[in-house]
């Protein structure tokens, strides 16, 4: 099981809905594993963050990415595809977190090498439960790559 890392786990949340951002922050705040949550509100900002472009020159490289599919400027599918084709980024696990329950979205995301596909429940309590299980699995059980 994951040894307690001395440095916090860096998480990039790509999400344009402020309510979902707040809830995710809330759910991760009490996590057993120390983590820092960074937020990008659209697809272009997410890729700039990951590639250290512009104002993101000094940001850390995330250990885990939570990615919404429906995003302004550049949608989540394109962001996922670019991450998984980039040699410097593709080892970072990407968890899709979206309202879409459509089978083609699920199949397409896995085909583009999403690491996991999770649907956002509409209910607030259930949403928190889902984020907490993501935290529990990806922060406490999984070994992330720190290269």
């Amino acid at each position: 099981m994951t040894a307690m890392p001395a440095v916090p786990i860096e998480i990039l949340l790509v999400e344009d809905n402020p309510g979902d951002v707040r809830l995710t922050q809330e759910a991760l705040k009490d996590a057993k594993v120390r983590n820092t949550l960074h937020v990008a509100m659209d697809g272009v900002a997410a890729l700039a963050f990951l590639r250290h472009e512009g104002k993101y020159a000094a940001v850390p490289r995330p250990d885990l990415i939570l990615l919404d599919l429906n995003l302004p400027k550049k949608n989540g599918r394109e962001v996922l595809e670019e991450i998984k084709q980039d040699d410097a980024l593709r080892h970072i696990p990407v968890v899709i977190l979206t309202t879409s329950q459509a089978e083609p979205d699920i199949a397409e995301s896995y085909r583009l090498h999403a690491n996991a596909y999770v649907t956002k429940p509409v209910d607030l309590e259930q949403f928190l439960t889902v984020v907490k299980s993501i935290e529990q699995f990806w922060l406490e059980i999984v070994k992330l790559s720190h290269t």
Binding site: V118, T119, S133, I134, Q136
Partner: peptide, 13 residues
């Protein structure tokens, strides 16, 4: 934890 996350939370293709 694997069972809980992958069978209960994740949408599998």
């Amino acid at each position: 934890a694997i069972g809980q996350f992958w069978l209960e939370i994740v949408r599998l293709p």
